[in-house]
């Protein structure tokens, strides 16, 4: 017995290390960020308040970058306004001809960003409005430029938004010029890749990308970004497409929460199918 105790004491570091690694791996297999418990929601409120206290501190880099982005946007918008006026008239005429319904306008809630968390390449922001203002988990955040992210947790007066610039976010998107659909995923900084577009399709740099009708999380036709690179990949069936987000995530200060939650029935159906597939997999 004494020998056994001595053995344990002698190698206590190794035993402790193995035990802690096993505990960590068990915890990892148990939960993910989407399953935020009540305790974490309290945490968000607390963190929101804390971040609110420090939100007055200016970030010179961000201000400079925002000014540059705004000047570019201003230039771009002024040329587009003229085009838009013409397009609007033409659009009205065509709508009447085709008897299309007016697209639905979603109500929006303006919010101030009180905190940004960029920890180990995970990007979240906290805004100063929550449940008390009608914000719910699953609503979409956007700016005038385009899509920002999704509300993943809310407390009374704060909401936590997961930016689209996160590794586990996938967006069903549509290239406007030729109505091609693909899946967008983050590649780092403001860049994204568009997957599942065959080599034979006509995609060019400069093509505009919006959210697709097929998305089960985001409302359709919200601007996402501009294609910066589109190359035929000879080693695969699909093109290599890189897109830059319209939103400059470094300089965000205000945003809107779109009062839109994807169809719950559709969500439920997808979850049921996913569950069935998982059961089938585990049976095999």
């Amino acid at each position: 017995m004494q020998y056994f105790i001595n053995f344990i004491v002698k190698f206590k570091e190794y035993f402790t290390f193995v035990a802690l690694v096993i505990i960590s791996l068990s915890l990892i297999s148990m939960g993910s960020v989407s399953k935020i418990g009540g305790l974490r929601t309290i945490m968000i409120g607390t963190m929101g308040q804390l971040q609110g206290v420090f939100s007055w501190i200016p970030n010179p880099g961000a201000v400079q970058s925002e000014n540059r982005a705004l000047r570019e946007l201003n230039l771009q918008l002024s040329t587009e306004v003229t085009k838009m006026r013409q397009s609007l008239l033409e659009n009205e005429r065509l709508k009447k001809l085709l008897e299309l319904k007016e697209s639905t306008e979603y109500e929006m809630i303006a919010c101030e960003i009180v905190g940004k968390s960029s920890v180990e390449m995970r990007n979240y922001i906290t805004v100063n409005k929550g449940e008390n203002f009608g914000i719910k988990k699953g609503m979409v955040a956007r700016t005038d430029a385009g899509i920002v992210g999704l509300v993943i947790a809310v407390s009374g007066n704060y909401s936590l938004i997961e930016l689209i610039a996160n590794r586990n976010v996938k967006i069903s998107a549509n290239i406007i010029r030729n109505n091609i659909d693909g899946i967008i995923s983050w590649q780092g900084e403001d860049y994204f890749v568009i997957n599942n577009i065959p080599n034979s399709f006509d995609v060019k740099p400069g093509d505009e990308v919006v959210t697709s009708n097929y998305s089960n999380k985001y409302p359709p036709d919200i601007p996402v970004g501009l294609i910066t690179k589109a190359e035929v990949d000879k080693s695969s069936m699909f093109m290599k497409i890189v897109m830059r987000s319209y939103v400059n995530f470094q300089t965000l200060e205000q945003l809107f929460i779109v009062k839109y939650i994807a169809n719950e029935e559709r969500q439920r159906l997808l979850e049921e199918i996913e569950m069935k597939l998982q059961i089938k997999k585990s049976e095999k």
Binding site: T16, L27, M47, E120, R122
Partner: peptide, 28 residues
């Protein structure tokens, strides 16, 4: 080892990461 695990766990909790990820990496 204990502080690595504890600090990692604390960090996972407040940063909304998958619980255990930082606990594991900081223990190692």
């Amino acid at each position: 080892l204990f502080f690595g695990f504890g600090i990692g766990l604390l960090f996972d909790f407040i940063t909304l990461d998958v619980i255990g990820t930082n606990a594991l990496t900081k223990t190692i």
